[in-house]
Design a protein around this nucleic acid. Sequence first.
RNA 1: GGAGGGAUGGCCGAGAGGCUGAAGGCACCGGUUUGCUAAACCGGCGUACUGGGAAACUGGUACCGAGGGUUCGAAUCCCUCUCUCUCCGCCA
Length: 424
Amino acid sequence: MHDLRLVREQMHLLRDGFARRGKLDTLGPILDRLEGLEKERRALITAVEERKARRNVMTQDVAQKKRVGEDVTELVAESRSVGAEIARLEADLTATESTVHGLMLELPNITRDGVPAGDESHNAIVRSWGTPRDATGVRPHWDVAGELGIVDLARGAKISGSGFIVYRGLGARLVRSLINLMLDTHTSEHGYEETWVPLVVNRTSMTGTGQLPKFEDDMYALHGDVGFLISTAEVPVTNLYRDEILDAADLPKALTAYSACFRKEAGAAGKDTRGLLRVHEFDKVELVRYAAPDESDAELERLSGHAEAILRKLELPYRVLLLAAGDTGFASTKTYDLEVWAPGVGKWLEVSSCSSFGDFQARRMNIRYRPSPGEKPRLVHTLNGSGLALPRIIAALIEHGQHPDGSIAIPAALQSYLGTARLG
RNA sequence: GGAGGGAUGGCCGAGAGGCUGAAGGCACCGGUUUGCUAAACCGGCGUACUGGGAAACUGGUACCGAGGGUUCGAAUCCCUCUCUCUCCGCCA
């Protein structure tokens, strides 16, 4: 969420930002509406407070007069009528405020300097690593994995539905191995604290990180309004410090978590949905960082570096994209996507999205830090990224390590976890 | 699931319709003293919104878990909800 002050004093920043996202058509009218509502809101505040001040004086007067035994019936009557006026104005104020707040929650973040304007065709490759394997003769992972018996798509669909995966044998162990490799690396080499968080969160948490109110259709809601299945561990982990004040000495704070992630992806059927490419439930190791504002740029580089380190350990060729404004997520100021090359499907697959949110999430969650003792608390900056999402990594491993006989070479870093150097 | 207790500032903790933004303590900040550290003493010390001001600052309003109600006036009385603790039952 943006500071309301922007609506009042820096409207052009919002307009420019939304224009870079290509969203001015839909968001421009909302800004116009907000501008008027904000004026109205402040006028109502002034009106209400003026009357409250008056009533407070009268109320003191009543107490005073009663003490000396004077008649107060007239004063009480006047105070009562001011009270009625206050009630009326406050009802207006509450309505206006909730409209303003609702609209503010729907405004996306604005991207920071250096992020290209426009849609995804303006995404920029900022670096790459490794040599993408030639696609000729490499079969897609769903064929090979099926033959090897490590992934069972048919039974996953039977017991849960399409987009739910059953891993078996070394496939199941591969999932566990990848999770362990990632968590071990992030905790012992990158300094993250390991956490284990609930997979169910409440509406407040979902709103805090920005999934709500806009994307309710994309997630699984539990019956009886008791919560949602998380779409990413970002939600519980980032909400860990909601409504808290951190010490400056605690920053940057680095947290990692493995979790299952659940996504309905309504309307996403059709493209790129085969095999492990897009599924409703998947496993992911997430990285979350809280940083002081002047550190958040450097922190984003660190964070994506930590995710990249996993790809290098897995010996998977990848490239790093700086997303254009129009492709950058709702809450993000700047996002790097990490994509691995999958020769079997002949595509670059997004396996991590590393974002810096500025104070956008922190304002929604009221997460602050005290720069130094005695100073006023300030909003922290939050960042997160996958480190990494498993299904597409598994797809890439199967395709990249594929031998002509259908067996798969396992990268050295993973062998001790998996207990073997090849599958099949 | 049943029965009770509780929720007050960064933390602990008083307060029981008006004189309470809230005693006292801890922590923190500034100062005095001190060979250093500690201690002692003095002073300061919440947040948000809103008005005025270039700013320092200053006027106002609100905030005692959340929301509603009673009242001229609510931290204090009433209702609902949330969370928490203790005990009983059930269960992994």
